[in-house]
Amino acid sequence: MEAIVVDKLTKHFRRAYDKTLKGFFISLVKGEKRYKEFTALNNVSFKVNKGESYAIIGKNGAGKSTLFKVLSGIIHPDSGSVKINGKVAPLIELGAGLSRDLTGAENIRLNCAIFGLDRKRIEEVYPKIVEFSELEEFIHTPVKFYSSGMKARLGFSIAIHIDADIILIDEVLAVGDKDFKKKCYAKMEEIRDSGKTLVIVSHSLKPLRKICDRALILERGQVVDIGEINEMIDKYQDEKKTNNKKKKGA
């Protein structure tokens, strides 16, 4: 049984030159194009099985976050289809889904409500989220005063507690401190073992070898290869090395 089926997914972005009505009318009068198109995802297809841990690896700008946004419904694809079986908890980039002006406590309740938890369930998971994040002292401070590490803690703690079947984790652990990272990796293994589906984007490849089963290499919006995790990481690193050598040689 698949948790995620992505078929021939393509997404173009429009990069607007001027995001105002004034700009709109000026380019209308001048008869020029208002935006240039850019292909962020190009014919991407893959499947993630239920209970599997899956990694997406690729350089900056490869389209990893865009892919996650399409999977979680934030962005609509131009063509292709996405099928999701289960509830998705997306943890996309830093400060995932946190409202700056609200306190940590309010953000927990807000996010729980967004993911459809009822009041009783919210009160049940609230203390667990606070405990896991280790932010008791700052829980009534507005999130705008949080460091990026603190936001990552809060975001991660929320995502793993909202009763999701599929958890998408995008580079959120890049900023946490060592101890918390360790705790998160341990938690991810625990989540995987409990039968939930994990999809992870990370620049620290080493922990992925331990957590993930398979990986997808993404380059400029296109799938390069899909396969067993260690194989894929080796391939990705080899390519990077040869690319670097080429650059040095040139």
Binding site: I74, P90, N111, I114
Partner: peptide
């Protein structure tokens, strides 16, 4: 005014 939320979660 809620861009930070809209960019990261869907509802």
């Amino acid at each position: 005014g809620n861009a930070s939320l809209i960019k990261k979660v869907y509802f």
